[in-house]
Write a protein that binds this DNA or RNA. Structure first.
Lengths: 210, 210
DNA sequence: GTCATCTGAGACATGGATGTCTCAAAATGG
DNA sequence: CCATTTTGAGACATCCATGTCTCAGATGAC
């Protein structure tokens, strides 16, 4: 009966600890467990009671990050409506969890776990689909591959996370800075006419402005 | 007498090993020395003869990366002439060493070494100055801080490095993808008139398009 | 061919982080 | 107030990467 109560308490404890762990691990992926425990305000013994080992802890941090990013994609409803508007919603939804994304970016090939990797693939596929749709809608530039746009978007979100953590970027400016920079590069220019739909050469010499 | 010969031979060996080490470390910063040695085609014993320990190896990889990036800044002559042209030259010069930058991006706060950190600060300052100059020339958007642009540029170069290493991006497309995406977001739009030079608010509501 | 040098493979010691345990103190719940 | 549970501190044991050493074979100079 009280089982559920304990479970709930432990769940919140685990999340609190994971949040603290992210703060340390996103910067120093090799931080000792002592450090993580201290950052979480608990002892190393309790940390071991919550997570059976370092590997499990890292795994759960990764899962938390992926779930948060998935939730951001859900919140932004990235599969609905205009791609540009969806992207702007996604920026706002993802920036608060930028630190998690920073951790994922640094660690994402470090997982042997299928659960983590599969979840990762799903989210990246959703991003990819968003950019593809935007290209089909004529909103996103087609000279840049959707794969590269997905990757670059995630890299910039991670960069936002790092910059905020190190105090190089004000959290207030984060969403604006990300949206303006990335969308400026990814959106089709309004003044540029529709390029020939056939043979979209990867080398459009659009840069020459004599 | 033959001292110089040996020194020269060892120098090239060291660079070869460092190149191989980058390939491993940029992806898995915690890779064992065995792995690095195997990737370099030498034994762990020889690796220890070339570098007195892991710390020294990591340090030298970092220094190599910073020297390469500094050389790219030199090659691009980033302090000369039009900022946009300088940026385009920098993209071409930096992309071949993107893997090194990827390593630096993941590891750059991990150094206690003053020599490494100072060199890092210098290069970032040069990038920062380039963006500042571009903003004064009216070429680079002023709504985005030069600090953020510097950071984002480096993050994207690192992203290029990771993507190439994992085969997600063709090396041929790297410079184009980076230049188009980043410059698209960083350059002042040709059609946008000069914003009021006084009180450059960081919240230009340019995004609203009713 | 002979010599000096470099290299690779392995054994071995070491250090430090991790994992496990116990027990007293604190917190919680009735 | 008492019983139960959780927590923290510390003492270990263990594991593994690192660092060091030796020695036989390979490489290269002369």
């Amino acid at each position: 009966m009280s089982q559920m109560t304990y479970t709930r308490i432990m769940a919140t404890d685990r999340d609190t600890v994971l949040e603290a762990a992210v703060g340390v691990l996103s910067r120093r992926p090799t931080a000792h467990l002592d450090e993580i425990a201290r950052a979480a305000g608990i002892s190393r013994a309790t940390l071991h009671r919550l997570f059976p080992g370092r590997e499990a802890l890292i795994r759960e941090v990764g899962l938390l990050g992926l779930h948060r990013f998935a939730a951001a994609l859900d919140t932004a409803a990235v599969e609905d409506g205009d791609a540009e508007a969806a992207l702007r919603r996604l920026v706002d939804a993802a920036v608060p969890d930028a630190a998690l994304c920073a951790f994922l970016a640094g660690e994402n090939q470090l997982y042997d776990d299928d659960g983590v990797n599969d979840l990762w693939e799903v989210q990246i596929a959703r991003l990819h689909a968003l950019f593809l749709r935007g290209q089909q809608q004529g909103v996103i530039r087609i000279e840049l591959s959707a794969a590269w746009l997905s990757e670059a978007f995630f890299d910039l979100v991670a960069g936002i996370g790092w910059a905020i953590q190190d105090g190089r970027l004000a959290p207030r400016d984060a969403a604006f800075s990300l949206a303006e920079l990335f969308l400026g590069g990814a959106l089709r220019r309004a003044d540029a006419p529709t390029p020939p739909p056939t043979a979209p050469s990867a080398r459009t010499p659009e840069t020459d402005t004599p």
